[in-house]
Nucleic acid binder design. Structure first.
Lengths: 254, 254
DNA sequence: GCAATAGTGTCTTTTAGACATTATGTG
DNA sequence: CACATAATGTCTAAAAGACACTATTGC
């Protein structure tokens, strides 16, 4: 029988690009809820890249799948509990990790619940939610990841990093993760995995358009989304305008 | 500095699901070229699963990326030279390989050139092109992989294997690969990576519809494809009908 | 009443599909 | 000429977008 001991073996890490939407009372004038796209990061407390930010993750252990490793590390490091996980890609360039031969199995993870506590209750308490924005500047799109204090961690144009304060090759992984997120939202309605169970149609629009980079009128957005929704008997709390019906995702969509 | 030696490490394999179209003179009545979808397999000459068929692949070596490993193994084992490679997924269920802790990084690979020699000139001469068909049977689609002698190696309904003579978990990898192929052909025009540089519009139709599971009239298929094509000054060899203009893929189409 | 969003309807543009028609090659 | 496929055009149905208009709610 073939011996596998004759080959060197790499360490295998599982890292996750976790996106979620935060609900902030932004404009004080009217109870307007603005949703901001957030990315879960960890500030490293050890070498290499001590003090820099990285994706949450850790090493694969014997007896678990890469999915289980990603979920375990997410739970341990950041308190994020039940995200939707999708494989994003394997990063194996030699030299990507100064500690040695380490390949990373990267995941795209989506959570419905972004709360400050999520990050705070972690072991290391080093996890936090960074803000993600995607803006069109003179033709091409710029993806920006910013710390809560305003420090820019990452700027990407056309899918490749142009400004990068992150550890390892995590800037590239994040860029790939956002591009994949866009594809999944456009083609497989993954927007619903970033929303609470019940939501209004207009709750969907800002998140959807931020990720897809599109823009429509509220009327047409409604017409586009309604076939994917089931209405409920609930209404949102009254604001300074007509109350809105709450919907849930329709079964069998995607 | 963090020691990575304290962790067990898995062996990492790179396996490829290689698709390509064969051009057969099928119907003898008129010089009709029929294209058949093929999948590259290897008959194993050693344990485990000695005598069974598996995807071409092998172990990752220090100093190479998983992409390089996949290309090297493809070239060594099967003679397939310059395929388009895309990461398909990581398979890491415990027990998936009786030799021990081995995870597989699977690739979707597309080649423009399916020839008997491709497989024959390999080291082991154990590589061959199996035939892939996807038929609609009472509502759901059945994916079938057949050996040249007619032996059924794999039948899948709804993306999961129902009849499976393949080694390891390669049946599931192939099922995932075909589903991914369909998505890439529909959304990213990957059909062109399965065709020669120059082709007629009708050369495209049978391959396109086999993979996507759709069916249209030749007229409407032409209208759908023309925006993605650049015409050339060449024509195909005359058949028993009007000669057809040869096209190439238009730049900037994805 | 006013501001703001919810929700409906109407019109137009674009796209996809059904299908008739002409063109051109071989036998 | 018969036949098969190439290539174009026409009509229709479905989807996407622009936008007018009505409905509620808080202030």
């Amino acid at each position: 029988m073939y011996s596998i001991e004759q080959f060197d073996r790499p360490s295998v890490a599982a890292d996750a690009v976790v996106f979620g939407f935060d609900t902030e009372k932004a404009e004080p004038l009217r109870g307007l809820k603005q949703r901001r796209l957030k990315l879960l990061l960890v500030r490293r407390g050890e070498e290499p890249f001590c003090g820099r930010c990285s994706l949450p993750g850790g090493f694969l252990r014997r007896g678990e799948t890469v999915e289980q490793a990603a979920l375990r590390e997410l739970s341990e490091e950041t308190g994020v509990a039940d995200p939707k996980l999708m494989q994003l890609g394997v990063y194996s360039e030699t030299g990507r990790d100064p500690r040695g031969w380490i390949i990373s199995c990267a995941f795209l993870a989506l959570t419905k619940t972004v709360t400050p506590e999520t990050a705070a209750q972690s072991d290391a308490a080093a996890a936090f939610w960074a803000e993600v924005s995607c803006t069109a500047e003179n033709g091409s799109e710029i993806l920006t990841v910013t710390e809560p204090d305003g420090t820019v961690l990452l700027r990407c144009g056309n899918g490749s990093p142009v400004q990068n304060a992150l550890a390892f090759d995590h800037a590239q992984i994040i860029a790939d993760g956002f591009r994949r997120l866009r594809e999944e939202v456009i083609y497989h309605d993954l927007i619903f995995d970033l929303m609470p169970e019940l939501f209004t149609v207009s709750d969907l629009q800002q998140p959807y358009e931020l990720i897809t980079g599109t823009r429509t009128s509220p009327q047409n957005f409604r017409k586009k989304m309604l076939p994917k929704l089931t209405e409920t008997d609930y209404y949102n709390e009254a604001a300074a305008h007509r109350t809105a019906k709450l919907y849930r995702r329709k079964d069998g969509i995607s």
